[in-house]
Write a protein that binds this DNA or RNA. Structure first.
Lengths: 212, 212
DNA sequence: ACCTGAACACCGTTCAAGT
DNA sequence: ACCTGAACACCGTTCAAGT
């Protein structure tokens, strides 16, 4: 005899997001999610293939949120100001919901991660601003440089790496100002120096280069 | 009746390092380590408090290795060249042993991480080079900017974030050249721009700022 | 149809019993 | 002293049985 559904995919994802933010990814257990939506853990498998798919759905939702935030931050039309505002927005998001942020950017099985196009769309306006600043020839490298710095800086903040004291806000402003200035100067030929020696890496993991 | 020891703390840590590099941190299970050293998992608890302590000991060993590599990379005495070589060495290490690298820099329970002073010692020569380049007033911010960029770039490589194609080596060289140039220019007053608006973050997690 | 208890495989960890 | 099997608590996941 048919039974009315007692929960839904949306409710499960929503509960998962809440648990993720409060209890971290490790705390996101199937039985915790189940009890949050009022069923037992085996019932979740009617709505979701496995825990990996649940994480994936949560990651997609987070990617959309972050994209909205970044997009909303670019308001002036001036690429320098907009770029700074977008990086600030990325950082603010990471501070507010570190577990969600980490879900987007840390190494996880591919099947767990957000859809690549969703993730790409989240940072697309950032790429555009860098393109305007650095010129189309350097858009990709420039954006990668800014994004890499922002990711690394935020990562260090979130993982408590700033243990030498000093003013973290000052270090952030220093990095942002100098990077944006350097990107803006990239229209002219790259600075000299660092010549004669090859760019090192003897061994690069195959899949670290491949596009996927 | 006393029984001769069938293994040792050192053998356990060594086996753990091998398993970490080949099977990732998740694959580093107590029973896998135990069978690698020829005992059953309960016996490991005679040498090691728990899995967390084992991870901590491995992290310490990795930190020392990385410190050696970074230190050995600075050979010329010229801060620009040495800084570039040290960042290259950091990247090469990450490519060769990504799981070890990640153990050092990803978020883990404090008790699992390398001793802070060991980690600090590993990047200390890098700080010195930045100090020479940027002047003592900007050593800390400068080093944090370079380290943040390097961490972020390597993280993106290792997590497969470079999915837009393009030449990753070129992006690396672009970032390294521009950053080092920007740091070198920091002796003069910081670039203008980005004025009038506050540096954003509305909410900062308490422990993200604290030094520990 | 949907839900559940019971069961399974797999962790880390403890402990009484063996040598 | 050191080692081990058995046991426990905790995962994710499957499935037969219930409604």
């Amino acid at each position: 005899m048919p039974t009315p559904a007692r929960t839904s995919r949306e409710a499960i994802v929503a509960a998962g997001r809440t648990i993720l933010d409060s209890d971290s990814l490790d705390g996101l257990t199937m039985s915790r999610v189940a009890s949050a939506v009022g069923v037992r853990s085996p019932s979740l498998y009617k709505r979701v293939r496995d825990r990996g798919e649940l994480v994936h759905l949560i990651a997609n939702a987070v990617a959309e949120d972050l994209g909205d935030r970044v997009r909303a931050a670019a308001t002036t039309g001036d690429p320098r100001r907009d770029l700074r505002a977008m990086v600030d927005a990325l950082r603010a998001f990471a501070h507010e919901r570190p577990e969600s942020y980490r879900l987007l950017f840390s190494r996880l099985p591919d099947a767990w991660r957000a859809d690549p196009d969703l993730a790409a769309r989240a940072v697309e306006p950032l790429f555009r601003a860098v393109g305007e600043l650095a010129g189309p020839d350097h858009e990709l490298e420039g954006a990668r440089t800014v994004v890499a710095w922002a990711r690394g800086f935020i990562d260090m903040e979130l993982s408590g790496s700033f243990k030498l004291g000093g003013d973290v806000e000052r270090a952030y402003a220093f990095g942002a100002d100098h990077l944006i200035a350097a990107i803006g100067a990239a229209r002219r030929p790259a600075p000299p120096m660092t010549g004669d020696r090859p760019a090192t890496p003897r061994k690069v993991r195959p899949d670290a280069r491949r596009d996927r």
